[in-house]
Amino acid sequence: MNKQAGREPVLSVANLSVEIPTRQGTLTPVDKLSFDIEQGRILGVVGESGAGKSMTGNAVIGLLDPPAHIAGGEIRLKGRRIDNLAREALRKVRGKEIGMVFQDPLTSLNPLLPIGEQLTETILEHLPVGKTEAQNRAVAALEEVGIPAAAQRINSYPHEFSGGMRQRVVIALALCAEPSLVIADEPTTALDVSVQAQIIALLKRLCRERGTAIMLITHDMGVIAETADEVAVMYAGRLAEIGPVRDVLTAPIHPYTQGLMASTPLAAKGKKRLSQIPGAMPRLTDLPDGCAFNPRCPIAKDKCRRPPAPNLDSGGGNAACWYASGARS
């Protein structure tokens, strides 16, 4: 992707593979994934359900559920390798340097603790401040995410807030130790349509103000179009295409991305009807040889059905396809 000279990316993932040993053999939900996110930039990650988006996010923050584990590659945060850190060192990275926002704000907060306590415990864990200062910062954090009368509501319990308000609290929690990267895994999927845009705008504004990079996992192409700087398209654990949002949305070069855009109302504006990609994404247990997309691909040829699978270099650096049409420079 477009690296600006002299700027070190906040997050640099290179050839990341995640494996799950199972009785039917080893599954590879994330297969040799590479991408960078620079300071203050937003990378959108899209792909069908099961493409490995959450796995990738969890691998980066070191929260894979065993038996899933990182089987290869490197993850660097501001140049420092974090994929091979010891448990305790990794814990100190979580929350402090990488914040995470989950899908469902109704279940992300501990129902038995006031939100203020959940904030102060996080602040005290990561920042060198005392109790009073932590409390002041907790109030400030709530004010920043737009909780009205924050000082009074600090002692409220999660159930006293609506879904949208709770997701604001979750964002305050993810950002309260000032991380340089936030991973947001479908942060609006569980919310009312009416508040989705507000939450995305809030996340975007806060990160812009602090120069925080965001890895934004979503199904919503509209959100990607409005929010992201770059977009990565995943298919069956592999990167299909990556590039600046405008390019990928308006001039996709991987047949899968093209199909995806044609099936999205936003990108397919003007066309009379939405098309659909025939078939379904293969299961991890029976991936086809060669390109994982070949059974559904309109332009698949013999080469696509034989190993090795194409990688980004096969398609001119932006798309993992042997026959990518009109590779962008």
């Binding site: 923050i61 929260l63 814990r91 100190k92 990275v93 979580r94 929350g95 402090k96 914040g99 995470m100 989950f102 469902d104 279940t107 992300s108 907060l109 501990n110 129902p111 603790l113 415990e121 996080t122 864990e125 990561h126 979750v170 929690l173 993810a174 130790a177």
Partner: peptide
Amino acid sequence: DYIRFARARGLRDKSVYFRH
């Protein structure tokens, strides 16, 4: 989820297990 989130916030095991 809130245990996952507590871990993602970098809380210590002791706090995750006993407090949360």
